[in-house]
Simulated assay, not measured.
Amino acid sequence: MKTVYKEYLTERFIDLDRVSQKQVCEAQDIVRGKIGVIIGDYTILDCYLCVVCGNNPSTTFITIRNKNDTDLAVYIDGYFMDTISGDIVQLI
């Protein structure tokens, strides 16, 4: 899954604080080699990892989005959670 950085407070990975950088690296490791997610009974392909760069973990958002830029899952404490139900999503 490719990673796209979006500008919020900063646009560059190097400008993130160390905790945010660690979270982004963990999320990238989880999605490496994956192409989509399974949410409930639906399989959604052609997804990407979106990082909205803030200046600390509270303002940095890591999500999986589909090709229409809809947030499907959000990264929380080492897991990607469905944005609607809050359940852990399965990556494929």
Rank of each mutant, 00 (worst) to 15 (best):
M1Q: 06
M1A: 07
T3K: 00
T3V: 13
V4W: 00
V4N: 07
Y5F: 15
K6C: 09
K6L: 14
Y8E: 11
Y8D: 14
Y8S: 13
L9E: 14
L9R: 14
E11Y: 13
F13I: 03
F13C: 04
D15K: 10
D15R: 08
D15A: 08
D15Q: 12
D15L: 10
L16I: 06
L16V: 08
L16T: 03
L16H: 04
D17I: 09
R18K: 15
S20G: 09
S20F: 10
Q21M: 15
K22I: 09
Q23K: 15
C25F: 15
C25P: 02
C25H: 14
C25L: 15
E26N: 15
E26M: 15
E26V: 06
A27E: 11
A27P: 08
I30R: 13
I30N: 02
V31T: 09
R32C: 08
R32P: 00
G33C: 04
G33V: 05
I35V: 13
I35D: 05
G36C: 04
V37K: 02
I38W: 05
I38Q: 15
G40F: 02
D41A: 12
Y42A: 15
T43Y: 09
I44K: 02
Y48M: 06
Y48L: 09
C50W: 00
C50T: 00
V51G: 02
V52H: 08
V52K: 12
V52C: 09
C53P: 01
C53D: 02
G54I: 05
G54W: 08
N56Q: 10
P57C: 04
P57A: 10
P57R: 07
S58T: 06
S58C: 07
T59H: 03
T59C: 08
T59W: 06
T60G: 04
F61P: 01
I62G: 01
I62R: 03
I62M: 03
T63G: 03
I64T: 02
K67H: 11
N68Y: 12
N68H: 13
D69M: 07
D69P: 01
D69S: 11
D71M: 08
L72R: 02
A73F: 05
A73E: 02
A73Y: 04
V74R: 13
V74T: 14
Y75L: 06
Y75D: 03
Y75Q: 07
I76D: 14
D77K: 14
D77H: 09
Y79H: 12
F80M: 05
M81G: 00
D82S: 00
D82W: 01
D82V: 04
D82N: 08
T83C: 15
I84C: 06
I84W: 06
S85E: 06
S85C: 02
G86H: 03
G86F: 02
D87L: 11
I88W: 01
I88T: 14
V89P: 04
V89T: 01
V89F: 10
Q90G: 05
Q90Y: 04
I92S: 12
